[in-house]
Design a protein around this nucleic acid. Structure first.
Length: 200
DNA sequence: CGAGTTTGACCGGCGC
DNA sequence: GCGCCGGTCAAACTCG
């Protein structure tokens, strides 16, 4: 896919989508590779003003039905459920389907299982699942009227990674967290280079 | 005391 | 039809 090379940054804004025109037709090109929202040059690992460097340093796009890594996909982890413009850097129909369904999964290298994505989540269940030694945790957006859910579990192959699956689209504004990511041209994987918590 | 978490029970979907 | 499994519910519990 036509993604800019190392250091090219993706800027994800929870409210940046403007309208909720979702989804954009696949194949219309990656809005990020064309430059628009990610013209922020402060990336490539640099921590710009207001950017909080966090421990999330690796992202892996996963499918929504089993977490098969490797597909170069939406570089949008946390904001995926918020910004409909997710998944368009992935030109596979599968990823488009994932985006269209409001489901997205990704893998994050983090010590923390709960990533601060700007929303408030309420845990409603925990279950150990087959084929994984780690339990899966179930969360619901605690905002009244919002039915977005997410599942969080440790990667069965590498406990250093947390697999998060979002389902649904928030119907409300979030306190706001902007995620910055860039892609490693060698591996094709996306890296979170920083986050920016917006003022409420 | 209210909000959030824990945890066992329950339910529905799916494969055999 | 049956059993397994993932997802959800809800009562009890914890914490601030």
């Amino acid at each position: 896919m036509a993604v800019a090379g190392a250091g090219a940054a993706y800027r994800f804004h929870p409210h940046g989508a403007g309208s909720m025109a979702f989804p954009r037709p696949p194949g219309s090109g990656c809005p990020y590779s064309s430059g628009a929202p990610l013209s922020s040059p402060a990336f490539g690992g640099a921590t710009g003003p207001g950017v909080l460097q966090q421990q999330l340093d690796v992202l892996d796009y996963l499918s929504d039905d089993g977490g098969v890594p490797g597909t170069v996909g939406a570089p949008l982890p946390v904001e995926a459920a918020v910004v409909p413009d997710v998944g368009y850097c992935d030109h596979t129909s599968r990823a488009a389907a994932v985006a269209a369904s409001g489901k997205i999964a990704f893998r994050t290298r983090s010590e923390e299982e709960i990533l601060d994505d700007g929303y408030k989540w309420r845990k409603y269940g925990k279950k150990s699942v087959k084929n994984s030694p780690n339990p899966r945790n179930y969360y619901r957006c605690s905002t009244e009227g919002c039915s977005v859910k997410k599942r969080v579990e440790r990667d069965k192959d590498d406990a250093n990674y947390v697999v998060t699956m979002y389902e649904g689209v928030h119907n409300h504004a979030s306190p706001g967290t902007v995620y910055y990511a860039s892609q490693d041209p060698a591996s094709g994987r996306f890296f979170v280079t920083g986050t920016h918590h917006l003022a409420p």
